[in-house]
Amino acid sequence: MVYTAQYPSPLGMITLASDGQNLTGLWLEGQKYFASTLKGKMPLQEEPPVLQAAKRWLDRYFAGEKPKIDDLPLAPEGSRFQQEVWKLLCEIPYGSVTTYGELARKIAAIQKRPSMSPQAVGSAVGRNPISIIIPCHRVVGTSGSLTGYAGGIGKKIQLLEREGVDTSRFTIPTKGTAL
């Protein structure tokens, strides 16, 4: 059974999904790959406790608190490689950023490989089905470009600024899929 709920946020409507025990999705309205891990229709059901907890987590986050990622049971659906990348995203501290290149170096070390493509990592980051909570917005290009956020660059900037990140040091790409 899939459970879904809506959450009105300062960034627009958010859709939450759960398997009843875990949070399995969080998508911003209009986001690329919106609800891509949900099979078929998204029935609105009675909200299980995990969806209520996710809403409280978001309330705290948007109120300027720093709720912990592990306060919620998360079960994003994806490949082993995507899971590894998403696990690393959860290690990026609130108010900090990292680069796709740095994540690629970490994945290469985990997999005991000489290197890893930052583009492959970027693809996994972009397919994160639990955005905001699994903080894919905290990843920037090596050159300081605010590229690669499936929710859009404007929302990425808002999330980073909400966390106290000085976004004036970053550039906005003039072309790309995240605009």
Results as ranks from 00 to 15, higher is better:
2 V>M: 14
3 Y>F: 12
3 Y>K: 05
4 T>V: 14
5 A>Q: 04
9 S>I: 09
10 P>L: 14
10 P>G: 15
12 G>L: 09
16 L>D: 08
18 S>R: 03
23 L>K: 03
27 W>M: 03
31 Q>L: 02
31 Q>Y: 01
32 K>P: 01
32 K>F: 00
32 K>A: 04
35 A>T: 10
35 A>G: 11
36 S>W: 09
36 S>G: 07
37 T>I: 15
37 T>P: 00
40 G>N: 09
43 P>C: 14
45 Q>M: 11
46 E>H: 15
47 E>Q: 14
48 P>R: 04
49 P>S: 13
49 P>K: 07
51 L>H: 12
51 L>C: 07
51 L>R: 10
56 R>L: 12
59 D>A: 10
59 D>H: 15
61 Y>V: 08
64 G>D: 15
66 K>C: 12
68 K>V: 09
70 D>A: 07
73 P>C: 10
78 G>M: 13
80 R>D: 14
81 F>L: 15
82 Q>R: 12
83 Q>T: 12
85 V>M: 13
86 W>T: 12
90 C>A: 15
91 E>K: 07
91 E>F: 07
95 G>P: 02
97 V>L: 04
100 Y>S: 06
101 G>W: 00
101 G>P: 03
101 G>R: 01
104 A>Y: 02
108 A>M: 14
109 A>C: 08
110 I>Y: 13
113 R>G: 04
116 M>C: 10
117 S>H: 03
118 P>T: 03
119 Q>C: 13
123 S>G: 14
125 V>E: 00
129 P>G: 01
132 I>C: 02
135 P>G: 10
136 C>T: 11
143 S>Y: 00
146 L>T: 00
152 G>C: 03
154 G>P: 09
155 K>D: 14
155 K>I: 06
157 I>M: 06
157 I>H: 00
158 Q>D: 12
158 Q>G: 03
159 L>S: 04
159 L>P: 06
162 R>S: 13
163 E>P: 04
163 E>C: 05
164 G>I: 13
164 G>T: 10
168 S>I: 15
170 F>P: 00
171 T>H: 11
172 I>E: 01
174 T>Q: 15
174 T>M: 04
